[in-house]
Design a protein around this nucleic acid. Structure first.
Lengths: 331, 331
DNA sequence: TGCAATACCGCAACCGATTGCAGCAGGAAA
DNA sequence: TTTCCTGCTGCAATCGGTTGCGGTATTGCA
């Protein structure tokens, strides 16, 4: 049904090998042959079968990308960046969404492993041991989680977190809440310790709530917990939770940015359109995606020697101040 | 390096064929053998090579998904739904983003074609001829575009559009702007004609602007065009444009929902957190994704006979009224 | 003109699984 | 005891490319 290499070869009166070379390694054949083959291939509408090629070459030209939740606005920019970077290098992207279900991560990684040249795991929720198993399946890059034995792209929350706390304390806030993300989440742990350190340094009192799922509804729930605690400022694990908090508090008559200040993390497009606009810690998602692909390609091309220490890319975050933060209410 | 079927076979003192059958068609071998093979496979950590399987079976167990822009909040829910549906059927998803570049669609489809069992094209921007070429590459389902010769999942804007216009005219608006999306976009054409029809029916005046890219910035630009036109209500091609309009107008001191009403389309999560919350036409993205996969599987399993008319799934839309629309300003 | 070097091309094995067909052994029936 | 059948397993071809190796024709140089 579909045109194969052999078909093209027959049409040209050549062998499949020659046609293969003419198409993928043009210098190996004479100019005349090359010309003839390429014309025939074009005319016949030949499309190389990547599956067959993969099998014989041992390289699939595909990378796997596993994320917890495509619908969370934090991930699309990463996915997009990975995609774009790959497209430029003639790579395809196999995407999987684990639905925030950590147990699925290993399964997905396993079924993918023989189908891809490498894997990019974003914000894996699995416990360390299972993450190790994933890494053992093949070349793997982790984003938003530090895995000592594998290349990782990290998002350095501490800077942004410190900026956020400085910003809030400068505005007079003394009691600050941190709304924690999923317990397993590496980035949550990062953020927790960072905010704790920053608060200690600034002599502000930190109260932690959670864990919460990274969803608007969780933020709505969180808002009610804050009631009557004397807290004047909130830092949420991510923008979704922050938005939920804002929505619920507004509903209850609190003025965001006046009666209470809210800080999100991710600086997703949402933060610019919310009301009031959300002060958020900017996370360079696109850069993270791009860096992950580059790291993976380094491993695949063996730029990274086997026994080198696993490379680490650390990306900075910074606070973007918008309307949701303001002076602490007096009295 | 990695354990193959043959390795398992040797360990068991069997042939590869038997092992293959024991694993994928257990009834074909004796109970004892089945047991022995399965245990060995488990112990050795055997993971079947899907690439090899694809080659010999002629089925890859993968479907391709091509979208214009992953970062546009309209698409992630679709991608997610497709993903979820596929995961349940042991299918993988190959994702490509054309960056709103219609010329890339055919390219991507072509390179994917030999690597997937079928293709789902969401909102293709290509001209009809090229869309036809894509469909000719293999089983293809189109979402958000009607392609007569191929299965399609359509989102019926007319209902939602009519509801929107009725809503606005009931509120007293007589001059309504439509901010058009990409010229090539099938859904834009749908929406244009739907809104025009609804306005004619309701005797409201319709003024069209655009085309605009489906991005917030385009909405910001659009807002300024509306100035001094006497328009009191705006229906935008999508939520992003609507949000841009709102943001810019608020900035210029207009009160959204009072001085001017804004309606978006997609009902993305954004609309709930914007200020004011955005009245939007709800589009069942998840259902569209799921339906697309089902349609594709029907074709692949030949539930759909070759010469049947191409199946069509039509999904309804409806207006969700929020804070961005209100009575037309008097005078 | 002769010989060696070189440029091209084809043969065949291979990647890892699937599957039609044939062979073998064991049990059942006569 | 013989025969036939059935159930299980192995052989070998196949999917569509890639690639090392060897052969042939051509070229270059003396």
């Amino acid at each position: 049904m579909s045109v194969t290499l052999t078909d093209v070869a027959q049409r040209c009166g050549l062998s499949a090998s020659t046609v293969s070379r003419a198409l993928s390694d043009p210098d190996k054949v004479s100019a005349a042959t090359r010309e003839r083959v390429q014309r025939a291939a074009r005319e016949m509408g030949y499309i190389p079968n990547r599956v067959a090629r993969s099998l014989s070459m041992g390289r699939t030209g595909t990378i796997g990308l596993i994320v917890p939740d495509i619908a969370n606005p934090f991930f699309p920019p990463i996915i997009k960046a990975v995609q774009q970077r790959c497209a430029g290098k003639d790579l395809s992207v196999l995407l999987a969404d684990t639905n925030e279900h950590s147990a699925d991560e290993l399964d997905r990684a396993r079924t993918m492993s023989k189908q891809v040249d490498g894997l990019i795991m974003v914000s894996p929720r699995s416990p360390d041991r299972r993450v190790g198993e994933i890494a053992a399946l093949g070349p793997t890059v982790f984003v938003n989680r530090h895995v000592p034995e594998a290349p990782s792209v990290l998002i350095e929350s501490p800077d942004g977190m410190r900026q956020a706390v400085e910003h809030l304390t400068a505005l007079g806030h003394r009691r600050i809440a941190y709304l924690a993300g999923p317990r397993r989440s590496w980035s949550n742990q990062q953020r927790r310790t960072a905010v704790a350190a920053a608060c200690a340094e600034r002599d502000a009192e930190l109260v932690e709530f959670g864990p919460f799922e990274p969803q608007v509804q969780a933020g709505v729930r969180a808002a009610d917990l804050l009631h009557g605690t004397g807290i004047t400022a909130v830092i949420a694990y991510d923008d979704l939770i922050a938005l939920g908090v804002m929505a619920r508090m507004s509903e209850r008559g609190l003025r965001i940015g006046v009666d209470v200040s809210v800080v999100g993390i991710d600086d997703s497009p949402l933060s610019g359109v919310a009301y009031p606009t959300l002060t958020s810690i900017h996370v360079p998602c696109a850069e993270a995606g791009t860096a992950a692909v580059d790291l993976l390609l380094d491993v695949l091309d063996e730029v990274t020697a086997e026994d080198d220490p696993a490379p680490l890319v650390e990306l900075e975050t910074h606070l973007v101040i918008r309307g949701s933060t303001g002076s602490a209410p007096t009295g």
